[in-house]
Design a protein around this nucleic acid. Sequence first.
DNA 1: GCAATAGTGTCTTTAAGACATTATTGT
DNA 2: ACAATAATGTCTTAAAGACACTATTGC
Lengths: 272, 272
Amino acid sequence: MAGPDEQDERAFLESYDPRAFDPVAVTVDVVALTIRDGALHVLLVRRGEPPFAGMWALPGGFLRGVRDAEDLPEAAVRELAEETGVSAADGPLERVHLEQLGTYGAPGRDPRMRVVSVAYLAFAPELPDPEAGGDAADAAWTPVDALGLTEAGDQRPGTTRRLAFDHARIVSDGLERARSKLEYTPLATAFCAAEFTIPELRAVYEAVWGEELHAGNFHRKVLSVPGFVESTGGTADRGGRRGGPRPRLYRAGDARLLHPALLRPSREEEIR
Amino acid sequence: MAGPDEQDERAFLESYDPRAFDPVAVTVDVVALTIRDGALHVLLVRRGEPPFAGMWALPGGFLRGVRDAEDLPEAAVRELAEETGVSAADGPLERVHLEQLGTYGAPGRDPRMRVVSVAYLAFAPELPDPEAGGDAADAAWTPVDALGLTEAGDQRPGTTRRLAFDHARIVSDGLERARSKLEYTPLATAFCAAEFTIPELRAVYEAVWGEELHAGNFHRKVLSVPGFVESTGGTADRGGRRGGPRPRLYRAGDARLLHPALLRPSREEEIR
DNA sequence: GCAATAGTGTCTTTAAGACATTATTGT
DNA sequence: ACAATAATGTCTTAAAGACACTATTGC
């Protein structure tokens, strides 16, 4: 074992000048989810440069470390704002729920150098189409079903829209987190406008979980969970797409956890 | 907005030489939890050098980025092994459950420089006392109750064992994760030896949740969850500490999720 | 002997899910 | 007119929790 002096010196070097010995880059990537036309979409940008030129990737970029040092969630909001063309200050991004998803740092995940990526998950109501003005060659909301993601976190052969780096894994993790969070938190309301109807809320669950829910039971269940939604007293402009009475309007309640939870019907496979 | 050439150049620089512009150091810290004498303990090391000299901190260190590049979980296992003095290859660390907890990167969290720390959470059965041979001046399993952690993630005034950096927040997050995971995963078995009794398992729940559970209902509940535990057919050497029949022995089952879950009795406060 | 404990039984309350029903709307 | 839909009602089953009880052990 190294003597005390030698050890102190090493500790000093490692502590005070990381550039001198072992460079690691930190990026922040965002898995932004929204619902469009009843389907779950994720925001992707098309890469213009190698590596993975022409493939799609999550919006993200390097963390500003010292110059204009920013916190991790700040960096995530910045990346999201850059890609959507929406300023973080004004409206739409206000209602975005942001949470940390996980950090990905396997050696070789970026062929250029050692990169550790902190991934954030964003839940948003319908946002504008991304503007191509950002860093990327192109950007678009993409239906997650079009990515052909497998349970193992990669893409099925034959999927045309390929994801760069390990972003298939990150998107898979984000989707699983979203599906899980809908069970025990009121996060589904983050996909809705400020006022929404129970059928709209059910459409969110169906889009994220990818399965149909029983309308009657869902309705009663949502109203029975304390603090999930609260009535506005109002009524929607019109009924369902093909008829039916006008649903009542609700807004998000003050609950942070759903109790009892809204469990997914088909969870049997994941148990073992 | 910058022209295409200028933009390309900036992207090139940022992509290929992070050392040239904005250094960020990456560390991996470990919140290692175990149960000793019926109480939940966390592994801490005492800092010998400023900043925060004399205070306690989580075991951790810099990620080996290029030289001996290692994946994040590898780094966590390495840090844990270094502090416990147990080689990762042999016995005890084999049964340790490891999962990523979160990443902490607020500017100023380390006064020396910009550090992003990836925190891992480890659940372990009883491990040996740490050896002081590692980097740290001292290392010890510490009862989490002795840290005086508040719900806000800091330490109550008057707590003697102060935590350095934002490690009070990280430990708090780790504890909350552990408490939550006990509800819907069989992770409590990771705190037990290979063979254990239902009362021992209940002691784990009581230590992590910090509340007593009804022995009879707990027993029936555990056996009713498919795949949580399976009988070994054996019986413990002796009964309870102050009498009682000898409990039967079980081992961990093949379930990855508990269904139905084992919910904490007192969750009322956290809901809103 | 006595107190503590493991394990099981019973009962009540709550919640989930299947199904039915009524009223109201769009086409 | 007709089909779709919102919202509510009913019934069955599963599960949680309170409580009681027996058998077995340590001291």
